[in-house]
Simulated assay, not measured.
Amino acid sequence: MKRLPYLLIIFVLISFISGCTPQKVEAPVELTEEIRVASLKGPTSIGLARLMDQNEKGESNNKYNFTMAATADEIVAAIGKGDLDVAAIPANLASVLYSKTEGKISVVAINTLGVLYIVENGNTLDSIEDLKGKTIYSTGKGTTPEHVLSYILKSNDIEVGKDVTVEYKTETTEVATLLTTNEDIVALLPQPFIAAAQEKNENIEVRFSMDEEWNKLDENSSLVTGVVIVNNEFLKNNKDSLDKFLDEYRESVDYVNNNLEEAAILVGNLDIIPAAVAEKAIPLCNITFIEGSEMEDKLSGYLKVLYDAAPNSIGGNIPDEGFYYKR
């Protein structure tokens, strides 16, 4: 009888251990070791500069494999092959990809608002009305710069071909050269090309921000230059990692906007644009981080304007709700 308590204890222990033995369950999806992130050299990479630097030093929460491409076509090709998880690309291209891939990507944030400005080598423009009778040199015939300029001019009762002439060049650098070497030239240029031109000619002045002119016409939407997209297959398996990335991205953008000199050095060291140019350009590049419902409002309004001008510029359709990731 004295053995009973010991047998009972052993039985209880065996039962407890058996109860705690893990049951065979389906293995969880393994998180990607590194998040593969691509961006374009220029404004859409500037907001990432701090995070890129932290990643190189091993100070970021996630591990990242950052690449910068010279053209959007390189990024599109990599997305098509499944070689990228996240990318910073032009806003209209995100819409095109959503249509082409039948919803296999989502937009997670706006990272750059308007970077287009009316500038002149001279002193003749005080208001948008003063563009009447002028020739504006620009690039982007048939693309977003033309659609944005036409929308703003038309909304201010300025008719292209009648009140103003727009002469399109093939390369942005060609317009910048005209601006730096000729007086009384008016141009539509993006940052950081303006800052680079001002380094060569101090008489070049920014007259109008297309971003500000847009906001005068529509307070709900915005002129959106760049967005961040995610491969939905990656999102499905790595939502927590994506959300951590978004938090780190927001912190990086805040750092860039609030620490100009240090951020310009980072941008130069990362070979995004030269540091001296970056210090002048960053305040005018409208680097931002907007997500959720505000992102949808601003971006959907912008895409509607592009759709009305040229449906193919956004893929032929205005994206549905599935286009927007809201955590």
Rank of each mutant, 00 (worst) to 15 (best):
E291K: 13
E219H: 09
K280M: 01
G315Y: 04
A263I: 06
D218R: 06
D243G: 10
S300E: 05
N231R: 04
D271L: 12
P274S: 02
N220P: 08
E261V: 12
G292T: 04
K239E: 03
D218C: 00
I314F: 00
N269C: 09
P311D: 00
L223N: 12
M295N: 08
N286E: 02
K216R: 12
D320G: 09
K239Y: 00
D320E: 06
L303K: 11
I273C: 06
E248Y: 01
N259V: 00
I282F: 04
L284V: 11
L303N: 12
V228R: 05
N232P: 11
A276Y: 14
R250H: 08
K304V: 10
E291A: 07
Y255I: 03
P274M: 04
K280S: 02
E294R: 15
V253K: 10
E261S: 14
N257K: 05
D297N: 15
Y324R: 14
T225E: 14
I282Y: 07
I314H: 03
A281D: 01
K298Y: 09
D297G: 12
K216S: 04
M295R: 13
D247S: 09
Y325L: 06
E251G: 11
D308P: 05
I287M: 11
R327E: 10
I314P: 04
G322F: 03
A309K: 05
V253N: 10
A310C: 06
K304N: 11
G315K: 04
S221W: 02
L270E: 09
I282C: 04
S241P: 12
N237L: 07
D254K: 09
K236M: 07
E251W: 09
E219P: 09
V305Q: 09
N258Q: 04
L260S: 06
A263T: 00
A278G: 03
E261G: 05
D297P: 14
P311Y: 00
A264M: 05
N286M: 02
L260T: 08
F245C: 02
D240C: 01
I282K: 08
V228H: 07
L260V: 02
A276E: 15
V228D: 03
P274G: 05
P283C: 00
A264Q: 05
N259W: 00
L299Y: 03
E233W: 11
Y307R: 01
L284I: 10
D247L: 08
E248D: 07
N220Y: 12
E291P: 09
D218H: 05
A276N: 15
F289M: 05
N231S: 06
I272Y: 12
L266G: 07
E279Y: 12
I287Y: 11
E233V: 13
G315M: 03
A276G: 13
V253Q: 10
V224R: 08
N312W: 07
G292P: 10
C285M: 13
L284Y: 13
M295G: 09
K304M: 09
P283N: 00
N269Q: 15
E296P: 14
E279F: 07
V267I: 15
N237P: 10
L306T: 08
S293C: 08
A281K: 07
E262H: 11
A310M: 07
V230L: 02
V277F: 06
N269M: 11
A281N: 04
K216A: 00
N312L: 07
D254R: 05
V267K: 14
N317K: 13
P319W: 01
E262V: 10
E251K: 15
K304S: 07
E251N: 13
